[in-house]
Design a protein around this nucleic acid. Structure first.
Lengths: 217, 217
DNA sequence: ACCTGAACACCGTTCAAGT
DNA sequence: ACCTGAACACCGTTCAAGT
């Protein structure tokens, strides 16, 4: 009988900030962040929307928790090991996390917040770069570049682009017009459409690590 | 008398898709995209919100127009000239456009749309890379990497990050805690805070162009 | 043809009231 | 201490009505 299941979810464990954020992550993973609302989130927890405010400051607080949830899921680098290997593994792990939770990049844009997990993460990356011999300035350069590369690919992957003309024709007309006016786009569009972001990302990551290594010499 | 000015803006030029998008760009530049609403946008044009729907499909259509507005403002590369110089100039121009309109990255994430200006832009970049000797596959790699680098830096610049602990202490306690638990972050935070994204971006851009050049050999 | 007011279905958030 | 219903000030969008 459905009443029992309902009561079970309602009385099982008490509401908690962590439970709310876990539910928000799960909701965003399956439905997208843009459709996450306090009311719907409350519903998945068997609770009214206003109850959430007893454990969470507001919606932005939930966003901050979701961002930190993702950072907490990335395995940290080990400052003792070979830095090129550690940084490469870290980049790939970060990309994996952004692939698993594609909404992370937009949330980071919405709120440039740093929770405990993000701070621990950043601290370990700096430690790894420092112990590899990078000065503070160069470590900062390297971090900025690695972060941009990772965010950039995650960004492009998340915004699965479609070619849209703003004039309203049917699809065939559109493609013909595009092929006439923009021959290079028409020829390379298939490559863009079926892009393997993981391998593309690794390709660029190696170039960057190589560039940083020569800077270190 | 204010009525005259009011009537002037109301009767001067008729409403147009372009006028609406120009107003939306101006509004987002000064107030931020997140606070752009149909009602407020109508108000700046001296018109009710519902009138906009006579010239624009919906709010997403306005977003698409804003994205294309930014792409139209970027000077195109010249396929005949030296590709390294052209690509470098293009990257800097793109970064300038994203700096002038910081909301572009979030809109691109929201809607991966390609209007006419974006298509023309992309086509010229591919033409430049092809005439430099890159194969279609390598041109695609290069484009992906350059776009990621540019978006990544624009992204980081737009999400001016602040260090926020989710526990609620006063600022001094926060900084002390951070200095204890995350010494590397505490030491490098000033560098992150006063980061010159333009020069950082150029630094990484040269590394990438260098890497692409050796790939071309 | 273009603009409008009222209405609909949603938001985040507050607050007094319930247990 | 935690949850709730009603309310407030906003959204995007539709539609019948005005000119």
């Amino acid at each position: 009988m459905p009443y029992d299941a309902d009561m079970a979810t309602r009385t099982r464990e008490p509401l908690t900030r962590d439970r709310i954020i876990d539910a928000a992550v799960a909701f965003a993973d399956t439905n997208g962040v843009e459709s996450l609302s306090m009311r719907k989130l409350g519903h998945t927890l068997g609770v009214e929307a206003m109850s959430l405010y007893n454990h969470v400051a507001n919606k932005d607080d939930i966003y901050d928790g979701m961002i930190d949830y993702v950072f907490a899921s990335i395995p940290l680098p080990d400052p003792g090991e070979d830095w090129q290997e550690e940084i490469r593994r870290l980049g790939m792990a970060g990309m994996d996390a952004f692939t698993a939770h594609p909404w992370t990049v937009s949330l980071l844009m919405l709120r440039g917040s740093f929770g405990p997990a993000a701070l621990r993460f950043t601290d370990r990356v700096f430690a790894t770069l420092n112990s590899a011999g990078f000065s503070d300035e160069d470590a900062h350069h390297a971090w900025q570049m690695l972060a941009s590369h990772t965010m950039g690919y995650a960004f492009q992957q998340a915004s699965n682009p479609g070619i849209v003309h703003h004039h309203e024709h049917d699809l065939v007309d559109q493609l013909e017009r595009v092929a006439d006016d923009y021959p290079n786009v028409a020829r390379l569009a298939p490559l863009l459409a079926q892009c393997e972001y993981g391998t593309e990302f690794a390709f660029g990551l190696d170039i960057i690590i190589g560039g940083l290594a020569t800077k270190l010499d």
